[in-house]
Design a protein around this nucleic acid. Structure first.
Lengths: 182, 182
DNA sequence: CGCAACATGTAAGCGGTTACATGATTAC
DNA sequence: GTAATCATGTAACCGCTTACATGTTGCG
């Protein structure tokens, strides 16, 4: 399940351009699968080369041609095969948690800043999820709703956990730094 | 915050070999920062080249020399600088969630298998966390406890969410595949 | 006037994964 | 006997990120 496969999946919900897919990667897929233009465009070219998608050029005035991609039968088959993996990965790479492991080496101010930034990002996601719910979610397949709910549950847990446990990092652990300035 | 910096941080809690660090990457850091030998050994060499750690060879019988690394003053300063980043990242890359977005293209059996595998992995982590709590957690710095609790909260949320919402993916969405064999 | 949105791409580079290479000891 | 643990490394590869390159339209 690399960027290519996810693009193929997105296209199986309806034709789209690379630019369109980017927007989807930023919004509904943003919290668990990031991808930039530098991944998407080559992915689409490659899918086209393999005959898994077909590309239609839609000429436009004052802009580059819009390249609209559609899944082929072969592409659909390929997608179904990719979905047969019974143990797909779920990986977290968190500088945030790594940093918090060494909180005893940081000043309380720094820790607070890091925590607040994390809460902010989490909140941005929660707000985005709310917008989805009040607008476009109706016509989504069940899977997308499941994934949205998953993201929401995680973000709520993070918010709550930080709120309830930030004191752990601030109260003690002044052994190394002492609170005052050196 | 790459593997190098995390290694530096781990070493700041006490000297260790690459092999020791690997074990830490698998256990306490496993759920948010994976690293294999192929990343760790080059990272340590590089840290040593830059003078951020010092390496002591401990000869052994029947094994390669154990190379024990210690943080230098310079290394400590470097670590403190790395910890000044006020907005460390927290990234998820989930084939699992990507796949669930396209659950309507999968057979119920497949979906169940994927869900069960996810629950299993989550459970493995929860059991590991429990072991930490009943044994070695006492002497950990507050930050490590915070991170452990964070992981536990997330894993519990995932478990609960899947249990409570798996029906979403199974009940309907039979539009594309139909339940029976084609 | 400047910035965001629209629209597509290339190429270098980086960081991490995987596979390979070696080999003794200990526990089942 | 066979697997796991101890112990270190290299090198190829892969996939993604970042920066570069280009240009129009429309809004505030």
């Amino acid at each position: 399940m690399d960027v290519k496969t996810v693009c193929l999946g997105m296209l199986s919900d309806g034709e789209a351009s690379g630019y369109d897919l980017k927007k989807q990667f930023e919004s509904s897929f943003g919290h668990f699968f990031a991808a930039g233009f530098g991944s998407i465009y080559p992915a689409l070219s490659s899918l086209a080369d393999e005959g898994l998608v077909r590309c239609t050029d839609v000429p436009q005035e004052g802009r580059p041609d819009r390249k609209v991609y559609t899944v082929t039968d072969q592409g659909h088959q390929h997608l179904l095969k990719a979905l047969e993996n019974p143990a797909p990965s779920h990986k977290v790479r968190s500088e945030f948690l790594a940093m918090m492991c060494f909180a005893h080496l940081m000043r309380p101010q720094q820790i607070e800043a890091v925590l607040d930034n994390r809460l902010e990002e989490t909140d941005r996601y929660l707000k985005m999820f709310d917008e989805f719910e009040t607008s476009c979610m109706e016509d989504w397949p069940q899977g997308m709703k499941f994934v949205l709910g998953f993201g929401k549950a995680i973000m709520q847990t993070i918010t709550q956990y930080i709120d309830e446990n930030r004191h752990m990092l601030l109260e003690e652990g002044k052994s190394e730094h002492r609170t005052a300035s050196a």
